[in-house]
Design a protein around this nucleic acid. Sequence first.
RNA 1: GACCGAUUAGCUCAGCUGGUAGAGCGCUACAUUGACAUUGUAGAGGUCACAGGUUCAAGUCCUGUAUCGGUCACCA
Length: 739
Amino acid sequence: MHEETPSIPELFLKPYDPQAHEDSLYKLWEESGFFNPDICVEKGIAAPDAETFTIVLPPPNVTGVLHLGHAYEDALQDAFVRYNRMLGKRTLWVPGTDSAAIATQARVEKNLQKDEKLTRHDIGREELVKRVNSFAKESENTILSQVRKMGASLDWSRYAYTLDEKRNTAVFTAFKRMYDEGLIYRGNRIVNWDPKGQTTISDDEIVHEERQSELYTFKYSKDFPISISTSRPETKVGDTAVAVHPDDARYTQYIGQTFSLTFCDVPIEVTVIADKEVDPEFGTGALGVTPAHSKIDWDMADRHNITHRPQVINEYAKMTVDGRLSGLKVEAARIAVVEWLNEECLLEKEETITQNIATAERTGGIIEPLPKLQWWVDVNREFVMKHSEIPGIESGSTTTLKKMMRQAVEGGGVSIPQERFEKTYFNWITNLRDWCISRQIWFGHRIPVWYKDGEIYCGVSAPEGDGWEQDSDVLDTWFSSALWTFSTLGWPEQTTDIKNFHPTNFMSPAYEILPLWVSRMILMSGFHLGQVPFKNVMIHGLVRDTQGRKFSKSLNNGIDPLDMITKYGTDALRMGLLSGTAIGNDIRFDEQKVGGYKKFANKVWNITRFVLTSVADYKSVDNITYSETDNKILKDLQELTQEISGDFEKFALYLAAEKIYHYIWHELADVILEESKPILAGADTAAKQARQQVLIECLTTSLKLLHPFMPYVTEAIWQELPAQMKDSELLMVSSWPVH
RNA sequence: GACCGAUUAGCUCAGCUGGUAGAGCGCUACAUUGACAUUGUAGAGGUCACAGGUUCAAGUCCUGUAUCGGUCACCA
């Protein structure tokens, strides 16, 4: 019929081909500068005093590749960013990457071992750091171009890397300020030592694994009156006490006595102490206290002023005592001790129990608790909040980091829309202990502390004079990540970005990251700025395979988002991820669904073709007389807009996505277009003109509403629309329909 | 051990403050070369895990149970 009408771009005669549009559209957006709110203001897209909307991208590992989890987060955040930008807010989404220190160093070391048969000690600290850095830089482009591929409208002019100079200054400044306040201290305490990774790790990097182990019941020697039970007899050469419950009648007579014994060739001195923590029902009701190799025992020794705390296991999980255990690995030592117990006829019982043992998340190594001189963040020490904008905390009031972290959420400064995760957060805060922030690897932010002849100096740069030696440890990655919402905005300088864009509006992490990252951002932002880092935490679920399993290398069930993009287009992938599942629940990734949304993109494409064809002879007139149906259609459209806006405000993206999908396909295409056909072909010119106007209205509004979800196809269409239909050259910065 | 989530159509999931069970995919039948690498119309299908309770009314609120999944903690 009208297919050859010149005003219909030829493009629409073929199905929508994502490959042909996506990259050039991204380039068009990026070059427009509108990802940058300052330029939006400059060009009149946003008012200079418009409300701001900020998200900081959770930085992917600089050496990583995009996986579906990222794809989901990118799509989710981008949808909000685009929505808010269209609302006319000064909208900023800050990109960045993370050094992922331990993982990145491990990978470089592995390659070093494989290719050159060298260890890090062979090439030295400086060379290793150099290599890790260049490795990180090399891989950077991969992940960044993949984030772009997702259509993420990030302000690249503000790109940050956790190890770049500005972030380094931020980290050192943060450290120093907390050090000066006494909130960072150096202390000899039990740490989680990973013998495999040769570093300390934090409590949160521990994974408990259930295993069968033997529980042995025995006496230290024939002369010792009390039997104890343990699954780690090799540590008993480090015992300095036996603890019993104060009310346990069996042992009261021994309390306070000290025994000098020889256990497995090692002389030990054991004092019997009474402590309420001991469960009289468990085992013999008596517990051998090994202060140097158990956190609980260390604390117990503190309570009873036991200062003698011999270390009997070293960093390589080997015994350091003399005698028959000398130099043995802990597992071998365990066997040797049991042999000895048998020889001496001291072993009373051996039973198999299931036990959770602590392993390192990254290396899988079995954690060996060791006393070490480490740096800590004190979460219970009182300090004065000089300046506070956190609801419920007054400027000038005294608090602790722990209290502040609780208050930030309790007082509503940070809101977690899903109540259930709020509970998890409080649970975690309650159990929060001092945070060990030093790591014994070489790649990362070096601890900004220098030593010289017993003197200690903490500062943002090295002290004057010779002979100062910097602490050899680096900081936990999460220390710098915790500063992310404001270090990316230029802190510690008092930048206008901080003034304008902090606190950020929301953060949308997966639930597994809640304690690791979210709470630490609240800690840092609270202490350094007196602000919350974000007003909302919208926790989302994990992307899983069709059987509900996590994606993993060992299962070989991985799906490369880039493959999906090649096959179905970015828009389809985004819709497939965003619709169908309530935020917070895990997503089962279904390729078929993505396929369905590819068809949808094409549907929108064809709707456009039809509308453009139908309005080819449209002439705008001053007084349009709408029919009753016309008015109903326009009213419905308004209501839809209202609902979708509401869903955005309530973070119910999945509902918004489904609504616009349903409207476009089953209302606009199935009902409105069909019903328009006779009117358009009819003789009533006025009615026809009115309907043409309605169709234009429906199409442009639908494109706007769909744009946050499917930015490419909507923009591709927008670019082909005649200028008089549009309120802006780029759909990306057109204004959100009013309602 | 504590806490949390899930349980609704064959599959994947919605269902907000209680008011006659919904979507997508799949399936069946019919129609259609149409604006549509098809699409449209119609249809089949569910004791909303189970047992109690509150209510005029419960998928929805309360109590308990079961199964699956998760998080945290931990007894040596």
